[in-house]
Write a protein that binds this DNA or RNA. Structure first.
Lengths: 155, 155
DNA sequence: GATGCTTCGCAATCTCATTGCGTGAGCTTT
DNA sequence: AAAGCTCACGCAATGAGATTGCGAAGCATC
């Protein structure tokens, strides 16, 4: 199912990326439609998978997830089996927010979220380095987060 | 305003992180409350800033943002002025999804989202390298994204 | 054991989501 | 150019859910 996005669709998506719980009545007003065609467009965007889902965004610091650590991972070997096992393991840990497979310097980069450094080291020792695929881990702790956005650019 | 999260609050947050548009009636059923105290808890979590906001999550590939590139940035100098200017510039670009200031190898790491490699190079040439603070940029293109989650771990 | 505090559930009201239907604009065909 | 077709719009009715006030129950304190 292919949907070509017109200006109104993009306007809807921009608004919903900022406020996913806006009422349809207000959304319609913002994009210059009446409620029913507006809701119809939203439903089409959902069915087309363009809107994947709606989520609540929590304040990391207030739920004990204030620290972001990047972990660069080296694998023991470079085969499909090892990669698959690693992917499965990584999916289980809620602390792992993002995981990318890379070429070059290391084999994978993880963004890991914990309460503080102590929690992180415990996570690394107890879980990360115990994944059978993992040979070694190096960590980077950013001093400051300048930006973290969920809003994809449209056009 | 400090709110201590009990088991029900964490349950609510877990559900809302998965489905930010669940009706209050169904949310109440899932966490084992009646609708009114459930809604009251949600409102308190919002007012306390624990729930920061609600957003629609789009499919990057379907809105022309299929490529993730990590850009490591080196600054010309290391003072507050340069950092501040850089932060302001970075905030303006919707393509920059995340930006971290780091120590060690480079000065900043950016996660940048574009449609494809061609769009990325254009963005880098036209915008990124033209930020006055920026001395040089090196890019890392992950082969594969194994995980990208919005859900913070609770407890 | 009484009092105060907190959080619950119930009920009433009101807003909003949802669906069906008629209308008009734009495009194709003849 | 007119007729026909399609698509998206707005309106209206209905039903579901959000929201608020109020009384009751649990728990701690004194």
């Amino acid at each position: 199912m292919s949907v070509t996005l017109d200006a109104i669709d993009r306007h809807i998506l921009r608004v919903l990326q900022r406020d996913g719980r806006i009422s349809n009545v207000e959304l319609a007003r913002e994009v210059g439609l009446s409620p029913s065609p507006c809701l119809r467009r939203v439903r089409l965007l959902e069915e087309a998978g363009i809107i994947d889902r709606y989520v609540a965004v929590l304040d990391p610091a207030k739920v004990g997830a204030g620290l972001t650590v990047f972990a660069r991972v080296w694998f023991k070997t470079q085969d499909a089996e090892v990669t698959l096992r690693f992917a499965e393991a990584v999916r289980r840990f809620p602390e792992v927010m993002e995981c990318y497979l890379t070429t070059g310097e290391c084999d994978a980069v993880l963004r890991i979220v914990t309460a503080d450094l102590h929690s992180y080291w415990r996570f690394q020792a107890d879980h990360l380095t115990r994944i059978p695929s993992v040979l070694s881990v190096k960590t980077d702790v950013p001093m400051e987060t300048l930006k973290r956005s969920c809003e994809l650019p449209l056009r």
